[in-house]
Design a protein around this nucleic acid. Structure first.
Length: 433
RNA sequence: GGAGGGGUCGCCUAGUGGCCUAUGGCGCCGCCUUGGAAAGGCGGUUUGGGGGCAACUCCAUCGAGGGUUCAAAUCCCUCUCCCUCCGCCA
């Protein structure tokens, strides 16, 4: 959520930047509601003061009939005004929720994803001296990916992953955990990228896979139509669509002491998505499924450290993809594409030989204090000042998707797959599957 | 699933309708005292919001939300979390 005070101070900026993000906002209507709300609040508070005064008069001694009658009158009037106040507050809150986060100044202005800025391209598209197969073909012929039987059992867009590909997934998970929990490795990434952040390690987390409605709504990520599965027969619980959705709200309603920050988590969760509106897209293989496993970074910082933390997460993503030896490019997303709660967003795309293009594998989202305001996650500094925290989240790996692209880039002429160097120690030294 | 007991301002705690603008202790901050400290003394110490240039002032806040009442930490209802016991269980 955005700060109403910010809208009062910068109405033009809010109007302009919201439009740039393709979430047009009626700023005048909000300010009018805000004025009305504060007027009503004044009335209600005056009545409450009167109620308190009358009750105060009756302390100790015997209540007088006049006082009781006056109190009754106030009670009736107060009930009526409080009703109006509640309506006004609801209306204002509903409008405020429609205001997106303001993009940082450096975010390119753009009206479609075509205007995302390619920051750099690293490595050459993988070359083969044979006709490469796509990961679905390789997966099927090696019996690593069984979609037909999964469809029979669970429905479309589910798979059985079997054999070496499962060991590969666990190897990636082990490797990522080893990187993110190592202060030495993190310090190296920080030094190599000239960043100004602490090297405090990430804490591995297995979060709940189910989220209550309140906690989900507070993240701003609940999307019933297109993404989030509701549990059958239960109005109040949803299936997690990303570890982020159960990590960003971990400190909901809490105030953290500044000297305990940053708090960094690397979460592992099976994630569930409806994928509505994607019919026909990416139907082959394991690029887009209703269920997939994901490693997700989440971090809570002070407002001062938020933007640096964002840069750090992007650097970690780049490190991970580089270590896997995959060709990639890095995008700074434009105002249209960064998403409603974002102040900034970067993507990393990996080369996919059989599609002859780069495909998104990573995104890094910086929310500034927007998400924390909705979650009421705050930071208390040494001098006692309390402000909203800054939050960052970023993909470590969507495991299905990265394995698909490892398979495609590392395939051999005889339909096998070489294992990237860094993963071998986590696969018992196996070099090829 | 069943039966009980709890949740009070960082921590512990008093508080069964008006004397609660919530008690006391610990911790923390400031001042006094001291060469400096300790001890002691005095004062302060939840959070959010409204009004005001400000001093200040008002409102809300005793797990959350409703209700009863002129008046609720206190009584009633719903929810939630924690603890103890029973049952079931990977």
């Amino acid at each position: 959520m955005i700060d109403i005070e910010f809208i009062r101070q910068h109405p033009d900026e809010v109007r302009e930047k919201s439009a740039q993000k393709s979430y047009p906002v009626d700023v005048e209507a909000i300010l009018k509601l805000d004025t009305e709300y504060r007027e009503l609040l004044g009335t209600v508070e005056a009545l409450r003061a009167k109620r308190n005064e009358i009750a105060g008069r009756m302390k100790g001694g015997k209540p007088s009939k006049d006082d009781i009658n006056e109190g009754k009158q106030v009670k009736v009037e107060l009930a009526e005004r409080e009703g109006y106040l509640a309506e006004s507050e609801t209306a204002l809150a509903a409008q405020l929720k429609k205001v997106p986060n303001m993009p940082l100044a450096e975010v390119p202005v753009g009206a479609s994803e075509d205007e995302n800025k390619v920051v750099k391209t690293v490595g050459e598209p993988t070359k083969f001296d044979f006709e490469p197969k796509n990961h679905a073909q390789i997966g099927e012929q090696n019996d690593w990916i069984d979609k037909e039987r999964a469809t029979k059992v669970a429905g479309a867009r589910f798979t059985y992953l079997k054999g070496p590909i499962v060991l590969l997934q666990f190897a990636i998970m082990q490797w990522v955990m080893s990187v993110l929990t190592s202060e030495t490795t993190l310090q190296k990434i920080i030094d190599d990228n000239d960043l100004k952040v602490s090297a405090k390690p990430f804490i591995p987390v297995i979060p709940p896979a189910i989220v209550k409605t309140d906690a989900y709504k507070a993240t701003g990520r609940l999307n019933e139509e297109e993404v989030t599965y509701k549990l059958v027969g239960d109005e109040e619980q949803w299936l997690n669509a990303s570890a982020e959705h159960t990590l960003c709200n971990i400190y909901m309603g809490e105030t953290l002491l500044a000297d305990t920050l940053p708090r960094r988590f690397i979460g592992y969760s099976t994630s569930f998505r409806k994928e509505a509106g994607t019919y026909g897209k990416d139907m082959e293989g394991i690029i887009r499924l209703h269920q997939f496993d994901k490693l997700e970074m989440e971090s809570f910082t002070t407002p001062e450290d938020g933007a640096n933390e964002h840069a750090f997460m992007i650097a970690i993503q780049e490190y991970l993809v580089t270590q896997l030896g995959l060709p990639y490019r890095m995008l700074q997303k434009c105002t249209f594409d960064i998403g409603f709660p974002n102040a900034s967003g970067w993507d990393l795309e990996v080369w996919v030989p059989t599609q002859n293009k780069y495909r998104e594998t990573h995104s890094a989202d910086f929310m500034a204090d927007f998400q924390a305001r909705g979650l009421n996650t705050r930071v208390k500094s040494k001098d006692g000042k309390i402000v909203f925290a800054n939050t960052n989240d970023a993909t470590a790996f969507a495991l299905g998707r990265i394995m698909a692209f490892i398979i495609e880039n590392y395939q051999t002429a005889d339909g096998q797959v070489r294992i990237p160097e860094v993963l071998r120690q986590f696969m018992g030294g196996v070099e090829q599957i």
